[in-house]
C-alpha cells in the first residue's frame, strides 16, 4: 500500500483554478451572517446590546448579506481568470422584480395574513406552495432565466452562483419590508434576516441546479416545472415547520426559527451539492474528462 502510494503521481499543489469557488464563498457568507446574528442574539441575552428597534441597525442588518456577497463573491470573482459576469445585475433585477411584482401580488392578491397564517399544517403547505412559494421561486427563476441563462452558464455550479444574488435580492425586499414596517427589535431582526436569507439561498440554489441541469444535462420536458414546484414545495415545508418551531404554548421560542433554518439549509444545500457532484461525475465519466470542483 505504502509502495503503491510512493509510485502514485503527486497531487499538483496550487492547482490553477480559473473560477471562483462557489461553495466556499457561499459558506463563508452564510457563516459570517450566522456569526453576526448569533453575536446580536447573544449580546441581547447578556444585556450587552439593548433589544430595541433601531431603524439604522435594521437596515444595516438587511444590507449585510448583500455586503457579504459583494466581499466574498463579487470581489473574489474579480480576482479569478474567468469571472462570472452579471452577478450584480441579477441581484438588482431580483430586487426590482421582488418589490415590483412579487410584493405587490402578495399584498394585493394573496393577502396571506388573512388566511394562510391560521391554516393548519398541511393546508399551509399546500396554500404556501401555490401562492407565495411558487411566486418567489418563479421571480428568482425568471430573473436568471431571462438574463444570464444560458449565455453565462458554463458549469452546473453557475446555477448556484447566479441563484445566490437572485435569492439575496428577493430576501432583501422581504427583509426591508418587514424590518421597516413592523419595526422588530434588533435581535428579532437579526434572526429574521438570517432566516429569510438562508431560506431563499437554499431554495434558490436548488432552482439554480435545475436551471443548470436544463442546460447541461439530459432532462425531461417537465424538468423546469418540476423544479419550480419542488423549490416552492420545499420552502413551504419550511414555512409549515417554522410555526411548530417558534410557537411554544402561549410563548415563543426565539431561536426556534433560527435552528430550523440552519438544519434546513444544511440538509437542502447538502442535497443540492450532492446532486451537482453526482451529475458532474456522471457527465465527466461520460465525456472521459476530469471534473472540476
Amino acid at each position: 500500500m505504502l509502495e503503491y502510494q510512493l509510485l502514485s503521481p503527486e497531487e499538483e499543489s496550487g492547482e490553477l483554478y480559473p473560477y471562483r469557488r462557489v461553495w466556499r464563498s457561499l459558506i463563508l457568507e452564510m457563516v459570517v451572517l450566522l456569526l453576526v446574528a448569533a453575536a446580536v442574539f447573544i449580546g441581547v441575552q447578556l444585556d450587552i446590546i439593548e433589544d430595541a428597534y433601531s431603524r439604522t441597525g435594521n437596515i444595516l442588518l438587511a444590507l449585510l448579506p448583500i455586503g457579504l456577497f459583494y466581499v466574498f463573491s463579487v470581489r473574489s470573482e474579480q480576482r479569478v481568470a474567468e469571472p462570472r459576469q452579471g452577478l450584480l445585475v441579477v441581484l438588482l433585477l431580483s430586487v426590482i422584480v421582488a418589490n415590483g411584482v412579487a410584493w405587490t401580488v402578495i399584498q394585493e392578491v394573496f393577502t396571506p395574513d388573512r388566511w394562510l397564517v391560521e391554516a393548519g399544517f398541511f393546508s399551509r403547505i399546500i396554500g404556501y406552495t401555490f401562492t407565495l412559494g411558487i411566486l418567489a421561486e418563479f421571480c428568482k427563476y425568471a430573473v436568471i432565466r431571462y438574463t444570464v441563462w444560458p449565455d453565462r452558464f458554463r458549469y452546473r455550479l453557475d446555477g448556484v452562483a447566479y441563484s445566490v444574488p437572485a435569492a439575496l435580492g428577493y430576501a432583501l425586499v422581504v427583509n426591508l419590508h418587514f424590518l421597516l414596517q413592523d419595526e422588530p427589535t434588533i435581535s428579532a431582526a437579526a434572526i429574521r434576516v438570517l432566516v429569510n436569507v438562508y431560506l431563499h439561498i437554499t431554495v434558490g440554489a436548488l432552482m439554480g441546479y435545475f436551471l443548470a441541469e436544463l442546460l447541461i444535462g439530459r432532462v425531461p420536458f417537465f424538468w423546469l416545472p418540476f423544479g419550480l414546484f419542488l423549490a416552492s414545495f420545499i420552502s413551504s415545508l419550511f414555512i409549515a415547520f417554522r410555526r411548530i418551531a417558534v410557537v411554544s404554548g402561549l410563548g415563543s421560542r426565539d431561536i426556534g426559527g433560527l435552528l430550523l433554518v440552519l438544519g434546513f439549509t444544511v440538509f437542502v444545500l447538502g442535497a443540492v451539492a450532492f446532486l451537482i457532484d453526482s451529475a458532474d461525475e456522471r457527465t465527466a465519466a461520460r465525456a472521459g474528462l476530469r471534473r472540476l470542483r
Partner: peptide, 17 residues
C-alpha cells in the same frame, strides 16, 4: 448544528408560564 442549537437554547429565555 446540533451543538449550536443546544448552546443557543441554553442562552435563550424560557417562555414565561
Amino acid at each position: 448544528l446540533f451543538a449550536t442549537g443546544l448552546g443557543l437554547i441554553t442562552l435563550a429565555p424560557i417562555p414565561e408560564q
